Amino acid sequence: METARLASLIAATVTMGLVSGLFYGFAIAVMPGLKGADDRTVIEVMQRVNVAILNGWFILGYLGAFVCTALALALHVPSDGRAVLPALISALVCCIVSMGITNKVNIPLNNALENAGPAAAGREPAAVRRAFEGPWVRANVWRTVLCTASTGFLAWALFLHGRMR
């Protein structure tokens, strides 16, 4: 059982770190890099990214972060390792809130952008971009902060777990 606890903590930390890094990359490089591009380019690039990201590797990390964190918490509840519970609960709450932001803000914005058609053909590209970019970037910053906090809580849980041995 101890091996499962440790393995779930490591897997949660790694997968959450991957998700944090992905969101961080968008926050500090991708979206700022697109800021100077014309409206049609931003729309086309983000439409392509939104299709490309829906792959097994993303799903493994994104859902894996939640599943592994929840599993680590569940495995530590009945153990003598309850010192890690506050960190694991905090990590899971941050993860869930981040997923909520993704589901309530980022995904609907991605879908609206996709529904605008190829580079917003037939619509005013500047209006399509304005409706997407600002809200998406703000939501992404929040989920970046939350996933980074979750990663920190998981790292702290790993530290505490190691001290208990």
Rank of each mutant, 00 (worst) to 15 (best):
I89C: 11
P118C: 07
I107H: 05
A91R: 01
T102E: 01
R138Y: 13
A112G: 10
G152T: 03
R163D: 03
S150D: 06
G134T: 05
C68L: 11
F153A: 03
V77A: 02
R48P: 01
K104G: 09
C147G: 11
L85W: 10
K104S: 13
N140D: 09
R123C: 12
N110Q: 12
H76W: 04
L109G: 00
V105S: 14
G21F: 01
A127Q: 14
R48D: 11
V77K: 01
I53M: 11
L9C: 00
K35F: 14
C95P: 00
M1N: 03
E114F: 15
V49R: 09
A120I: 02
A131R: 07
A4E: 12
I107V: 15
T15N: 04
L60M: 10
G117D: 15
T41V: 06
Y62R: 10
M99R: 12
M16F: 14
G61S: 14
C68Q: 06
N106W: 09
S20K: 10
G64N: 02
E133M: 02
M164G: 09
A91Y: 01
T148Y: 04
I89Q: 14
V45I: 09
N140Y: 02
N106C: 08
I59R: 14
C95T: 10
P135R: 08
I10F: 15
I59E: 08
A149K: 06
V84K: 00
V49N: 05
T15L: 10
W156E: 04
A126Q: 07
R163S: 04
F58G: 09
A11V: 03
N50S: 12
I89W: 15
L158P: 02
L34Y: 06
N106V: 07
A52N: 06
L60I: 10
R40I: 03
P108H: 14
V77L: 04
M1L: 09
W142I: 09
E124F: 05
A126W: 02
M1I: 07
R40V: 04
Q47R: 13
L92F: 08
I43P: 00
T15D: 00
D39K: 06
S98A: 15
L92R: 00
A116S: 15
A72V: 02
L113P: 03
I107P: 05
R40T: 08
G61E: 10
H161T: 14
G100N: 12
N110V: 05
D80W: 00
V49W: 01
G36T: 07
N115E: 15
T102Q: 12
D39L: 06
L154Q: 02
R138W: 13
A12D: 10
N55L: 04
G117K: 13
V105E: 15
S98G: 15
A112V: 07
F26Y: 14
R165S: 11
P135G: 12
G21P: 01
L109C: 04
P125H: 01
A72E: 01
V93N: 08
N50C: 10
T69I: 05
S20T: 11
V45R: 05
A139K: 02
V49K: 04
A91L: 05
A11G: 06
S20R: 08
R123T: 08
L109F: 06
F132I: 00
G122S: 13
M31W: 11
